[in-house]
């Protein structure tokens, strides 16, 4: 009996979540919220993604991969730099 009640509770919660009366943004939020909460393997994978993105953007990009043309503020300066390189091959 208890499990049947539990089952109907879940149904009613799902009905509530996906009822058209709920604002769309809230339904989308709950969809993702539930999805992330119910993840098992996904949590490990998200952790790996987060660590990887941190290493890539906050270590590699910031400290090791500065754009050579990034030091110039205008397009003209960038063009001049490249034209100088292209017309004076080493």
């Amino acid at each position: 009996m208890a499990s049947a009640n539990g089952f109907f509770n879940i149904i009613s919660i799902l009905e509530k979540i996906y009822s058209m009366k709920e604002p769309l943004v809230k339904r989308i939020w709950l969809f993702y919220y539930d999805g992330f909460r119910s993840m098992t393997l996904g949590r490990t994978l998200w952790l790996i993604i987060a660590i990887k993105l941190f290493i890539m953007f906050f270590i590699l990009k910031l400290f090791f991969f500065r754009s050579e043309l990034g030091v110039y503020s205008s397009q003209e300066e960038k063009s001049e730099h490249v034209i100088k390189n292209l017309t004076n091959p080493k």
Binding site: L41, L45, I48
Partner: peptide, 27 residues
């Protein structure tokens, strides 16, 4: 999912290299 998660954004590193190592080319 495992393959996607580990592989995601590995291609972005190529774009980092365009700007840093291959700037004449990327321009």
């Amino acid at each position: 999912a495992i393959n996607f998660a580990i592989g995601i954004a590995t291609g972005i590193i190529l774009e980092f290299q365009f700007g840093t190592n291959w700037s004449n080319y990327s321009w």
